[in-house]
Design a protein around this nucleic acid. Structure first.
Lengths: 207, 207
DNA sequence: CAGCCATAAATTATCTATAATTTTTCCTAC
DNA sequence: GTAGGAAAAATTATAGATAATTTATGGCTG
């Protein structure tokens, strides 16, 4: 039944998580096992595993014996996520700053340019996320990066659901400046700018 | 079959996670589904779910179609966990400091006293963890606390496995001082002391 | 005797069926 | 007309069986 090397539970998880991030599955929506199983032409055993994984990444909440629902993002949790990002991304950046190789820099710069020329909000969001990942991942701290990835996904959900209209392509000066500071190994300045950048991004979605 | 209100998958998870924390299941050990299922007199469906939950909390790692193993804790990951604790517990403490009610304070003080009179290392570790949780949980940030709980569990594993011998009952001056500073709402001083306290605890296990 | 392929054993992943629980529906009593 | 509660429907959780994959075994060849 599984034609690729990945397991069917993983495919179901990937599909559902993407749909939750994009807002196609709205917060509070019930995730019924056999309905999903029918949609994927599978039994509900792998579906249960996919749902458990969603829960682990904060995309669903479980009510025992009452099923799973798409997790909600209230304003308190948004603030919580922003504050966690501020301290964890700073930590990652401090380590990354010293570990960045020239290859890491060219990858990050490619991600930066791709972000600047994105054509619409969803693709900009994905590329913006990729850029931030590119400047942090060289910290070489897998557990930290896993936490940051989950926070990024939560931020993405919020961004895509709250952005009303009026997005337009723009060159991100912060991104270029952060990269420049990292090249110069000016850690404190890079951290300061990243914090300001994240706070600014947070405020934009509040409008 | 399930006599309590909790699900059997949860009971299996609780049991396995406790045994991993205490070091009864050693890092790298294979977690075979039907062996565990036999031990718990259950089928392997709930066992798979328990294993997935262990993975989500960082206690097991999965090799697709090759099963799960108890996760290893190398020195790099220990350092990573300590650094994450430093920034996340400081963040939690800042919020908790302003949210602590008189009831929160008496709970925390009871946890502090219980920790001081612990009779052996394992019970001290559990009570020390409970104390730290008591002073942080009033931050009222559930996602942050979930991250901190997982880090505490990882620290506990390391502590219990690396502590050779010579533990003895002792009154923890830091704990009392942190609580006092929190009562006075001296946030910066409390954060400074918590950071020193965590670094000290980290050094002890290195000897 | 080492390397290698075929086969057997063990193990994971999934499916179908059943049990247990919750939610819904609908009837009755007041 | 509404509240209460039993019966039905829907849903979750677990069990038992099957398919697919990996690991172990053992004989064969060079």
């Amino acid at each position: 039944m599984a034609e690729t090397s990945t397991t069917t539970a993983d495919r179901i998880y990937e599909n559902l998580s993407q749909r939750i991030i994009r807002g196609e599955l709205i917060p509070g929506e019930k995730l019924r096992q056999d309905h999903i199983a029918r949609d994927f032409d599978a039994s509900h055993v792998p579906v249960r595993e996919a749902l458990l994984k969603l829960q682990a990444h904060g995309l669903a909440v479980s009510l025992p014996r009452r099923g799973m629902r798409v997790s909600a993002l209230d304003t308190a949790e948004i603030r919580e996520i922003t504050e966690m990002r501020l301290v964890l991304e700073e930590l990652a950046l401090r380590h990354a700053c010293f570990h960045m190789t020239s290859e890491d820099f060219s990858n990050a710069d490619a991600a930066r340019r791709a972000c600047d020329v994105a054509e619409d909000l969803p693709s900009w969001e994905a590329r913006n996320r990729a850029f931030h990942r590119a400047i942090l991942a060289p910290c070489d701290m897998p557990r930290l990066m896993a936490s940051i990835d989950d926070l990024h996904i939560a931020s993405a959900r919020h961004l895509l659901s709250s952005w009303k209209s009026g997005w337009q392509q723009h060159e991100d000066k912060d991104h270029a400046a952060i990269l420049m500071l990292m090249r110069r190994r000016e850690v404190e300045a890079a951290c300061d700018l990243l914090r300001r950048h994240l706070r600014r991004a947070d405020r934009i979605t509040k409008r």
